[in-house]
Amino acid sequence: MSHVLEISGLVKTFGGLTATDYVSLTVDTGEIHALIGPNGAGKSTLINQICGEIIPNAGHIHLAGRDVTRLPPAERVALGLGRTFQITSLLDDMTVRQNLGLAIQAREGGNFRILDRASRRAEVWDEVAEILRSGTLGARADVRVADLAHGEKKQLELAMALSQRPRLLLLDEPMAGLGHVESQQMIEALQAARGECAMLLVEHDMEAVFALADRISVLVYGRVIAAGSADDIRANPAVREAYLGEEDA
């Protein structure tokens, strides 16, 4: 089976509101699968169920062939799930270098050691140096994250997520709040990461979606109303009415 992620019949209700209504979708190895839909369509709820922050009422989530529906978030990460947050979520009091270091340290394990020196773990810091050398953040390595620009934070978050070497990366609106140039940089960064892992991309920026996505699913009121290639979606009348139409208007 080449599905990295397989969601089947996922239901989540809050009180009387159905946020996720029998959603099924798959993400294949190496694929970028975009999830689009108007605000309030249930995209964030879906992402949070895949991550394990919300437990669904019904349905199943398989990650790399394993049923993870009821697994806590940290154990899903161990199975190869990475994510970025809609609102960047980093360790604000630490520097860029320290953030990357902690991400790699978390992946490497051995974190119940209480008498070693974290600053001397060569396997961690060699890789951090490598990431800083190859990426755009090198010049900002020793800046506190709280002092970074918004675009830089988004870049750092992506770098941290990729440093976990996930099989599947969940990207919750990576373009949100970015200017045109920054968006282009982010698209390039994601293109470059293609092949390292599969991605489920939640995004409002249609330019980015059409530039990146191999497949697109459209979520409206908690239901997947259409799925297919970029051209299929552009041509789909239901989508035009429910979603793209609004954007044009």
Binding site: C51, P72, P73, S89, L90, M94, A103, A106
Partner: peptide, 16 residues
């Protein structure tokens, strides 16, 4: 120290 600053982020890095 990471958990103090951002528990959700640490969980997303696979830390229980």
């Amino acid at each position: 120290a990471g958990i103090r600053q951002n528990e959700r982020r640490m969980a997303a890095m696979g830390i229980s």
